[in-house]
Amino acid sequence: MPSKAPVLVLAGSLALLAGAFGFEHVGGLVPCEMCWWQRWALMATAFFAADALALGMVARRQPAMGAAVAATAWVAILGLASNAGIALYHAGVEQKWWQGLTRCTAPPVAGDARAMMADILAQPLVRCDAIPWQMFGISMAGWNFVISFLLVGAATWLMLKPPKTFR
């Protein structure tokens, strides 16, 4: 029964989300569009990892559910791998390795035309090709890739390693 991999994927995706939202709400860094793509992938990953854990509890009473647990755990790992791919793409755009989006983003606005124009002009311009924060020369998107890649590797290893048998 694969139970450690979903726990690792769930904890990792929630930690990455907490870091992203922390940088936004505590650090004041407004996310760009590609940052949101990564967050959506992490939210989906967390959902499927939590689902795999819930199915794992059911499978303890109904062993026939074991295949559903494993399949859902693999979907969660695939979600984390997707996040790693998006993060790598974003980091490459930041480093000017390849072309990114041709538009920038700002938070949504609403109201009449005059109020909307005032809101638009007051919003911060968030560029996907700018690095708002980095550590050791690696941007947040780069760290997201590194951490996600390592988590995917560890979760895959946990899923593929043979179960312990006691004699």
Rank of each mutant, 00 (worst) to 15 (best):
P2G: 00
K4H: 03
K4E: 13
K4D: 15
A5H: 12
V7M: 15
L8F: 06
V9A: 03
A11W: 03
A11F: 05
S13D: 04
L14E: 01
A15E: 03
L16H: 04
L17I: 05
A18C: 12
A18G: 07
G19E: 05
A20L: 06
G22N: 06
G22T: 02
G22L: 00
H25C: 15
H25E: 15
V26I: 11
V26Q: 01
G27E: 01
L29P: 03
V30I: 07
C32S: 12
C32L: 08
C32F: 03
E33V: 11
W37V: 14
Q38K: 15
Q38C: 13
R39G: 07
M43H: 15
M43A: 14
A44H: 14
T45W: 03
T45D: 06
T45N: 07
A46E: 06
A49Y: 12
A49W: 06
D51Y: 14
L53A: 11
L55E: 01
L55Y: 02
L55G: 03
L55K: 01
M57L: 15
V58S: 11
R60G: 11
R60F: 15
R61H: 14
R61P: 11
Q62P: 09
P63G: 11
M65D: 04
A68M: 04
A68L: 06
A70I: 10
T72K: 01
T72S: 12
A73F: 02
A73Q: 08
W74N: 07
W74E: 10
V75I: 04
I77V: 02
L78M: 11
L80V: 05
A81R: 02
S82D: 13
G85H: 04
A87M: 07
L88E: 00
L88G: 08
L88K: 03
Y89V: 05
Y89A: 05
G92L: 01
G92T: 00
W97P: 07
W97F: 05
G100H: 00
T102C: 10
R103N: 11
C104K: 01
P107N: 08
P107W: 00
A110I: 14
G111I: 14
A113Y: 15
R114W: 12
M116F: 10
M117F: 09
D119C: 15
Q123S: 11
Q123A: 13
Q123T: 08
P124Q: 04
L125Q: 13
L125A: 12
C128D: 14
D129E: 09
D129H: 05
D129Q: 06
A130W: 06
I131E: 13
I131W: 12
I131Y: 05
P132C: 06
P132K: 02
W133D: 15
M135F: 15
M135I: 14
M135Q: 14
G137L: 09
I138S: 08
S139H: 09
N144E: 08
N144C: 14
F145R: 00
F145S: 01
V146N: 08
V146D: 09
I147M: 11
L150F: 05
L150I: 09
L150V: 10
L151Y: 04
V152W: 00
G153Y: 12
A155P: 05
T156M: 05
L158M: 07
M159D: 12
L160D: 11
L160A: 01
P162T: 09
P163Q: 02
P163D: 02
P163V: 03
T165F: 10
R167G: 14
